[in-house]
Nucleic acid binder design. Structure first.
Lengths: 226, 226
DNA sequence: TGACATGGTGTACACGGTACACCTAGATTG
DNA sequence: CAATCTAGGTGTACCGTGTACACCATGTCA
């Protein structure tokens, strides 16, 4: 809030929290140093006493968000535990729509990220998977370990000039896409969340596909050496 | 080249090609309208006669790259065909390291992207998978359909202040990560490509994991309606 | 021959990150 | 208690980048 308890000395976390609030409210592109400073009732350059630069600000923001991922209870069944942990991550990151883009743009690992990774890895290892398999399996999870599916589908149809978007030219030109789009629509359970697909369901589908595959490999003592 | 056959009237593709060359050579962050114009021996604003704005420039760039994905021959075995098609996409996009970031930042689908998607979808459908399963399966592939794995691992360790990166504090704090890192190292086949993992191998591992899972689901007539 | 379209030019502006020198109040110390 | 130090907030100014806008050159067509 712009108009309330101003001036209780800044701090790194206060800056980060305000940045997160800003990004949550108006999107990542609306986050800039000037606006953020204003929101904190302070002059832009004041921020630089608490964050090194904007990169550092972004790093700090995901650091907080990732740090909030709840540590799920362990049942001793690795597949279930991994699943729960990843869905917990999803819950945290989903609260901050910008987090995906930021996380993917970062190249450095922060402590909180490493801690999460380490914990997840531990679930596999404790479950008896070899370090070798665990390594590959973590790669296979990829960014999905953070709980987001690879959007690329929420994409809007092109506003391309050479493109007669009008009427149903698209179904004509891309019949296969039209077919699966139709399939996504009509199943009796109304797909919640957006006009097409249930993102949560899609996410869990993919996650389970991976987990089941991993389980199979584990069961057959898979190893990377041919 | 700055010093050669200047002035043969611009065109959208010439602009796009120059932009791609620039991004290939010096990275995406070095791509700006002024530099690009200079490279083409023209004043910055001239570009705007051929691209609407920078967004449009980026759209055009991936459009070209995606358009270059080779259409792989079909064997009639869907799993194999999908695999080949995706690896072809990978080859194209890998030639342009910036393409991943651009592709993920775009929200609109361009004709070439739709065409690729449509083709890939067709492989599943022609292979006999239901539209329902195909739909979910495309989601599960996610961005991996473009042939990139979710990096997040090439990440450099943190330069964090509160972080004693010195010595081997990291292995102490993150023992599980250390374990799989070790596993990635020593297997006798020296992991090519980078100091850690063979990216190509990781990609194919994950892809095959998904494809095998899909095959299993297909074989048991999976459907989304519980 | 003159009007128009296509495409390149020049100028100028707004926005965003941030370097740098400064100031100030509270803590520290001789 | 005065002198000093220091953490934290200030003001100004600069640079890089996208792009609006008015203009001009050239070649086509009636």
């Amino acid at each position: 809030m712009s108009t309330s308890g101003r001036r209780e000395t800044l701090s790194r976390v206060r800056v980060l929290a305000a940045a997160i609030a800003q990004a949550d409210a108006d999107g990542l592109e609306s986050l800039n140093m000037r606006g953020l400073a204003h929101e904190l009732g302070v002059v832009p350059m004041a921020l630089y006493k608490h964050v090194a630069n904007k990169e550092d600000l972004l790093d700090g923001m995901i650091e907080l968000v990732v740090g909030e991922i709840e540590a799920t209870a362990r049942t001793g069944r690795w597949k279930q535990d991994v699943r729960a942990r990843i869905l917990a991550a999803r819950r945290s990151l989903q609260r901050h729509p910008w987090s995906r883009a930021v996380l993917e743009s970062r190249s450095a690992m922060t402590p909180a990220m490493l801690a999460y990774l380490n914990g997840l890895t531990g679930l596999f290892l404790d479950g008896g998977l070899s370090a070798d398999l665990t390594h590959h399996v973590m790669h296979a999870l990829g960014n999905r370990m953070w709980g987001f599916s690879q959007e690329l589908f929420a994409a809007t149809p092109p506003t391309d000039p050479s493109f007669n978007t009008q009427k149903d030219e698209l179904p004509m030109r891309f019949p296969h896409l039209a077919a699966i789009a139709r399939a996504a629509m009509h199943p009796d359970r109304p797909s919640q969340g957006g006009p097409g697909c249930d993102d949560q369901a899609e996410f869990e589908f993919a996650l389970d596909l991976l987990l089941d595959g991993m389980e199979t490999l584990h069961a057959q003592n898979w190893t990377s050496i041919a």
